[in-house]
Amino acid sequence: MILSGQVKMKKNYKDVWDALHNPQILEKAIPGCKSLVLKEDGTYDVEMKLGIASVKGDYKGNVKLEDIEAPVHYQLIAEGSGKPGFVKAKMDCYITAVDEEKCEVKWECDAEVGGMIAGVGSRVMSGVAKFIAGNFFKDVEKQITLQKA
């Protein structure tokens, strides 16, 4: 399924780019993230706990970031599974500067879900994804502020 969204952030686009590549920030910003460990091959091992209705549960997986065009476009390849099923996703993330202090992040995700997440969750998937993404970017913004402070 194709999911997409966009968010406006009151931060400089380069700061956002850096934050989206910073494991400490990501760990704090990813909703339900229990641990995020950068491995030598550049992939992250992730453990998450989601509490949203049909996708509720513990997930384990890995995430890889590939920079297509720094600092405006990267691709995130994620794979994870847990009791409710599995998710495989490839997400393109575009960061566009609006001005020095603002930018816009657009994301487009091609996700494959399986198990209960598909059987129960598919009708709410895009809502859930937007909700998670919304929280994520809000927290990234917060973390950038904290870091600068």
Binding site: E112, G114, A118, G119, S122, R123
Partner: peptide, 14 residues
């Protein structure tokens, strides 16, 4: 079922 064989009608909502 979707094209990957995932059941999409797993509840009585669907």
């Amino acid at each position: 079922y979707d094209q990957t064989g995932q059941l999409l009608t797993g509840t009585y909502m669907d």
